Amino acid sequence: MTSSRERMVEAAFALFDEQGYDATTVEEIVERAGVSRSTFFRAFGSKEDVIFPRHDDLQARIAARLETGTPASYRVALREAAALVLAQYLDEDQLALSRYRLTRSVPALRDREIASMLGYQRLFREHARRWLAELGGPDVDLHAELLAASVVTAHNVVLRRWLRGETADPWHEFDDAMASVLAPDASGPAAQQGTTVVVLQDDRPVEEVVASVREALSRPASRRR
């Protein structure tokens, strides 16, 4: 049975597609969903909140996975935590595609989406700093920041390719991208002879991302600056 929350989300996105985000009111959403205004505002703080997944719940699951990581297993923890984000969007399917269209056309929604991604990046950074500090080495803060940014960037490349219909196998591309950015000699202080962390623009095809990272990792350490 469809819950009242699901009915409101479905009604909202249908109306956004039909008449646009700005032209749609809460009253129209609750009327189509067959619920009251009080039911709507118990579930959502605003019309904008209808559009986005439950980021608080997702962040809690990400944090729980990262908490189980150790200096020896942190690459696995980062990969699996990033996979939770991708799975959330893939599971939403058409809803995620509708959200993508909205965030491309409504600047305020795009800003909120960016803020959410920065929240995930902060979680990765905080845990990476702890792991890398235990491993020892210079510039732990810098390496943790770059490592977190690399993971989020790689995830976003794959997600946006899927949203644009450019890949039918996002999980395969995700595995390739994570293997590159989490390669042992891209891990910061854990690498004894130098560090390589590559942050790439998130709208490039994932094949270019992976090729660029691998090419960078293949250079001698003296040329990685």
Results as ranks from 00 to 15, higher is better:
I62A: 04
I62F: 00
L66P: 08
E67R: 12
E67N: 09
T68F: 08
G69D: 02
P71N: 07
P71K: 12
A72I: 05
Y74S: 04
Y74E: 10
R75T: 13
R75L: 03
V76S: 10
V76W: 05
A77C: 04
A77V: 06
L78N: 08
L78Y: 00
L78E: 09
A81C: 02
A81M: 04
A82T: 05
A83R: 14
A83K: 12
A83N: 03
L84F: 08
L84V: 04
L84Y: 09
V85G: 03
A87I: 06
L90A: 06
E92G: 07
E92K: 00
E92V: 04
D93A: 13
L95P: 06
L97H: 15
Y100C: 00
R101Q: 14
L102C: 07
R104P: 00
S105E: 06
V106K: 01
V106I: 10
P107C: 01
L109K: 02
L109Y: 15
R110N: 15
R112Q: 14
E113Y: 11
I114D: 10
M117W: 07
G119P: 00
G119E: 10
Y120K: 14
R122E: 11
F124G: 03
F124H: 10
F124K: 11
H127Q: 08
H127F: 15
R129M: 06
R130P: 03
A133N: 07
E134Q: 14
L135E: 14
G136D: 00
G137V: 05
P138T: 04
D139V: 01
D139A: 14
D139M: 09
V140M: 05
V140A: 01
D141Y: 06
L142A: 07
L142W: 08
A144G: 01
E145H: 03
E145D: 14
L147K: 06
A149T: 13
V151P: 00
V151T: 04
T153S: 15
A154R: 00
H155R: 15
H155I: 02
N156W: 14
V157M: 09
V157S: 08
V157G: 06
V158W: 12
R161G: 11
R161F: 08
W162H: 06
R164V: 02
R164Q: 13
R164C: 02
G165E: 03
E166S: 09
T167C: 03
A168D: 15
D169I: 00
D169C: 01
P170V: 04
P170I: 07
P170R: 00
W171S: 06
W171R: 09
H172L: 11
H172K: 10
F174N: 05
F174I: 09
F174D: 00
F174M: 13
D175P: 09
A177E: 04
S180P: 00
S180N: 04
S180F: 11
V181H: 13
V181L: 03
P184L: 11
D185N: 10
D185V: 13
A186T: 11
S187Q: 11
P189M: 08
P189W: 10
A190G: 13
A191R: 15
A191M: 06
Q192P: 09
Q192I: 10
Q193R: 11
Q193A: 12
Q193P: 12
T195N: 13
T196M: 12
V197E: 10
V197K: 09
V198G: 05
L200N: 05
D202T: 15
D203Y: 14
D203G: 08
R204G: 04
P205S: 10
P205N: 08
